[in-house]
Computed example of a mutant assay.
Amino acid sequence: MKTESTLTPERIISKIYLIRDQKVMLDRDLADLYEVSTSNLNKAVSRKIKRFPEDFMFQLSAEEWNGLKTRNETSEWGGTRKSPKAFTEQGLAMLSGVLNSDRAIMVNIQIMRTYTKMREMLLTHKDLLFKIKEMEVAVTKNHEDIEIVFTYLRQLEEGKTQEILQQNRVSIGYKRKDDR
């Protein structure tokens, strides 16, 4: 049996995905953390389905599921017949009322603590994120300015090339004696 010490924030964070602009955990990962089968987890949820509206839990579309498998580059996800369910933070909190084992309670506490730490980190580093965004905007603006400079340089070079070609062209027509 896995102990609480193996349930590190890093392990939990590795099972959090950003899908539909929400941080979610998949039923199969939660089942692994709770040490139950995915089907038993989903049966418990199905028995209390009214507790899980769409903003608490949703089924991944085939495209989302394929994209997630591709992003993780793993084949171990294999064998499932349908896309997994994704639980939002509110859905995870609701799971604590559905699953009553000591393990489920301990896991839910750890998951809620991890989500809280993530939120605190985001708030703490909000200024840093804002500065990075400002730099990104500045770099984009500089990139556009540099593109304009290169466009002008290309135009100047084309003009110089045309001028050189014009000077070096062979004259045609009649030559007067005094031109020789």
Rank of each mutant, 00 (worst) to 15 (best):
E163R: 14
D145L: 12
K48I: 04
I12G: 00
D21L: 06
E10M: 07
V149D: 14
T70P: 03
R180N: 09
E157N: 11
D127A: 08
R51C: 04
S46N: 14
G97T: 12
A31Q: 03
R113S: 07
I164D: 10
K2M: 12
K50P: 04
I132S: 04
Y115K: 00
N168L: 05
A44M: 10
Q167R: 03
K117S: 06
E158M: 13
K117P: 04
R113G: 05
K141R: 09
Q59E: 13
I146N: 12
D21W: 04
S83H: 07
R47F: 10
P84M: 01
Y174K: 12
M1D: 05
Q90E: 14
T6F: 15
V24P: 00
V137A: 14
I109F: 05
P84D: 00
E10F: 06
F150G: 14
T74F: 07
T151K: 15
F58M: 04
K177S: 13
D102C: 11
K117Q: 08
G78T: 10
L26N: 03
D145E: 15
I105G: 08
Q162V: 11
M94I: 02
L122F: 11
K126T: 12
R11K: 13
L7S: 05
F150A: 15
E64P: 00
S83R: 01
F58W: 07
T80I: 11
D29I: 00
I172C: 12
E158K: 11
R154D: 15
L33R: 01
V149K: 15
A104L: 09
K23L: 10
N100P: 02
I16N: 00
R51K: 08
I146P: 07
E134V: 03
R81W: 09
N142R: 11
V107R: 04
Q110F: 10
I16T: 00
T124F: 15
L123N: 15
T70F: 05
P9S: 01
K117C: 05
V45H: 01
L99Y: 11
I49Q: 08
E64N: 00
V137Y: 12
Q166I: 03
L128I: 09
A86H: 02
S75R: 09
T80R: 12
F87Q: 02
N108H: 07
V107S: 06
M57Y: 01
E10W: 06
F150T: 13
Q22I: 07
Y152C: 08
T161G: 01
E144Q: 15
S171D: 13
Q22L: 06
Y115D: 01
T161M: 04
F56T: 08
N108C: 11
H125V: 02
S14Y: 14
I146L: 15
T3P: 06
K117G: 06
R113Y: 06
T8Y: 03
D29A: 00
V24F: 01
I109N: 05
P9T: 01
K69F: 10
T8A: 03
K50A: 06
W77F: 10
